[in-house]
């Protein structure tokens, strides 16, 4: 982050804390590219860099009231970006280790199953790998036919939070199930 970006970020964040949505959108757009560069410089051009970016943006959103305009913006921002990058890295390692373990499972011919069985098992395994809140939201909406409002009421989350959580869950599921990653 350049000094000009830091000055601009602090100004936008001050406005965003007052409820200026345009300034907030500009801030998040700028921090997207900063976070992407930050993550790529540390872990390379891996597929989950965008996960780091989105996790960072979500955390900034939830933590924006903790930014003190009297203090520099960069340490506040990089503390969040570093923390989220480590979290995503850990999650990726966990997912990868599960995938490797799954590869060693089918042994005897009696365990040979149909294509549809494999899919169901894979879906259940992928669901089990999700964070509890994401799994709860997806199971509610897809298995129990709950609406976004139903899930929001049950989990005490806002409706937009339910949508964001569900989207993040779907994205992780797609990756776990071998689909293409968006964005």
């Amino acid at each position: 982050m350049t000094s000009e970006q830091e000055r601009q970020s602090a100004a936008w964040m001050r406005l965003a804390q007052g409820g200026d949505q345009a300034a907030y959108a500009s801030l998040l757009a700028m921090l997207t590219s900063v976070t992407r560069r930050f993550a790529r410089a540390r872990v390379g051009d891996v597929g989950w860099v965008d996960d780091v970016v989105q996790e960072t943006l979500l955390t900034i959103h939830g933590a924006r009231h903790t930014y003190d305009p009297a203090r520099p913006f960069a340490p506040w921002f990089y503390a969040i970006a570093s923390s989220r990058m480590i979290d995503v890295l850990r999650r990726e390692r966990r997912v990868r280790s599960r995938e490797i373990a799954d590869d060693t499972l089918p042994e005897s011919p009696s365990e040979v199953v149909s294509e549809s069985d494999i899919d169901v098992k894979a879906i259940h395994a992928a669901l089990a790998a999700l964070p509890a809140r994401q799994r709860d939201v997806i199971e509610g909406m897809k298995f129990r036919d709950e609406s976004v409002r139903d899930v929001a009421g049950r989990t005490k989350m806002s409706e937009s939070a339910v949508k964001v959580t569900a989207h993040r869950g779907y994205r992780t599921l797609r990756r776990l199930l071998g689909g293409r990653h968006e964005d």
Binding site: Q17, Q21, A22, A25, L28, L58, K163, V164, E182
Partner: peptide, 23 residues
């Protein structure tokens, strides 16, 4: 969800916040 959509979603839901007092 694409990052651009996420930014719009977050900005849309961003109201004024009460700043936390210093530690």
């Amino acid at each position: 969800m694409k990052t651009d959509e996420l930014i719009l979603e977050l900005a849309k839901s961003a109201g004024p916040v009460t700043r936390l007092a210093p530690p």
